[in-house]
Amino acid sequence: MATVPDIIQQLGGVTAIANETGIPLTTVHSWKRARFVPAWRVPALVELAARKGCALSDQDFPKERPAAKEAA
């Protein structure tokens, strides 16, 4: 399983994801900082990955938020 920052980088970065999905830049940035994407937002990123030809599935995302110590 990749980390959320790795996934965001693989998809072109925070700005590219925001521009290509319509998700606010601050929201995508908060996922990167928290190292977690809410489950209801994952399909948009999987769809973006498919459009970009990246191998990514919902199984690649953490299922729960990391502990505060790990997120820092």
Rank of each mutant, 00 (worst) to 15 (best):
I8R: 01
A55T: 12
N19S: 00
A50C: 03
I17A: 11
D58V: 03
I23V: 13
V42R: 15
A34L: 13
Q10Y: 10
P66D: 00
L11C: 10
R65W: 03
K52H: 07
E64S: 14
V42L: 10
T15R: 10
I17V: 10
G12I: 10
G22F: 14
K69T: 15
L25C: 00
E20P: 11
A68R: 14
A71E: 07
I8F: 01
A55R: 14
L11E: 03
P5I: 03
D60Y: 01
P62R: 05
P62T: 13
A49Y: 03
D60S: 09
A44W: 01
I8S: 01
I7L: 09
A34T: 11
R35K: 15
E70I: 12
P38S: 05
K63D: 15
I7G: 05
V42W: 09
A39I: 06
Q59K: 11
A72Y: 14
A2R: 15
D60I: 02
I7F: 05
D6Y: 12
D58G: 13
A67Q: 12
A50S: 12
A34W: 05
V46T: 05
L25I: 06
T15C: 00
L56V: 05
L11A: 07
G53Y: 05
D6K: 15
T27P: 00
A16K: 15
I17C: 10
C54T: 12
R35E: 05
L45P: 02
L45F: 02
T27L: 04
